[in-house]
């Protein structure tokens, strides 16, 4: 069976700096996979390469076996690769209703309709409501996103990514900045994602990583440093050294 997402020899240079160094990586179907690494290891660059924000200097990216290396972001989304952002990237002046609606309309191919008033397709509305109730946003549907509590905004981040019906979902530090009392709900949301969605979690918080992941990859200086089951990684002395070394440098 082909992997949900794979990279082959992926390289990205910025001038003289190698941010992604020959990464060959595979995300299995239905995986609960975490990508960790010290600050500056190149995790964000890697996500940006996967999603098409950046173009790689060399290497290929395969989505369910199909080469998507040259495709723009939106085309990858339509093929089932979706992501959330580390820092909320939402539309503060829109409502969750409109935000989720954008993603649903796009997926159903109605996003380019110029001559139809928003909110007149029952299929779209029903799906918005069903996603909103899944992510606990049903009461917030008509509130301006900018006015929502931070935890709700993080939920919306995931809900919106989910609304594109991804086969692969990249979660970029989903719990970053979420206050403790809203954290629990968020972690439950992530754990309850359907199994047919392959998830790659990029996270700093080791509690979340180890409670969620069934497989862990470690990125150091832009290169894959180690990969294995959580207990293997937890025992790996080299990983520990990298983390402790990285931690002292901040």
């Amino acid at each position: 069976m082909t992997d949900a997402l794979a990279t082959i020899g992926l390289v990205r240079r910025f001038g003289g700096l190698v941010a992604t160094n020959d990464v060959t990586f595979a995300l299995a179907r239905g995986a609960r996979h975490a990508l960790i690494g010290p600050n500056g290891a190149g995790k964000t660059t890697f996500v940006n390469l996967l999603t098409g924000v950046l173009a790689p200097t060399a290497g290929r990216i395969l989505l369910a076996g199909e080469d998507v290396t040259g495709l723009p972001q939106d085309a990858r989304v339509r093929r089932g690769l979706s992501r959330t952002f580390q820092i909320n990237q939402l539309f503060p002046d829109l409502t969750p209703l409109e935000t989720i609606g954008l993603a649903v309309s796009e997926r159903l191919g109605h996003g380019g309709d110029v001559w139809r008033v928003v909110g007149t397709r029952d299929a779209v509305l029903e799906e918005i409501v069903s996603i909103a109730s899944r992510f606990g946003l049903i009461d917030a549907l008509e509130t301006r996103v900018g006015g929502l509590p931070y935890g709700k905004q993080r939920q919306l981040e995931i809900a919106v990514a989910f609304a594109t019906r991804p086969r692969v979902l990249l979660l970029d530090e989903p719990a970053a900045g979420v206050p403790e009392r809203e954290r629990r709900a968020l972690i439950e949301t992530i754990a309850a994602l359907p199994r047919d969605v392959s998830v790659l979690l990029i996270e700093h918080d080791m509690d979340i990583v180890f409670s969620f992941a069934e497989r862990i990859s470690v990125l150091v200086d832009g290169a894959l440093f180690a990969e294995g089951a959580p207990d293997e990684i937890a025992r790996d002395a080299r990983v520990k050294a990298v983390y402790l070394g990285g931690a002292t440098h901040g």
């Binding site: 990237q89 539309f91 954008l102």
Partner: peptide, 14 residues
């Protein structure tokens, strides 16, 4: 409001 996010929703920004 946010072209990067719009593209990540599957909107063909260009």
């Amino acid at each position: 409001d946010n072209p990067l996010r719009a593209a990540a929703l599957g909107i063909a920004v260009d």
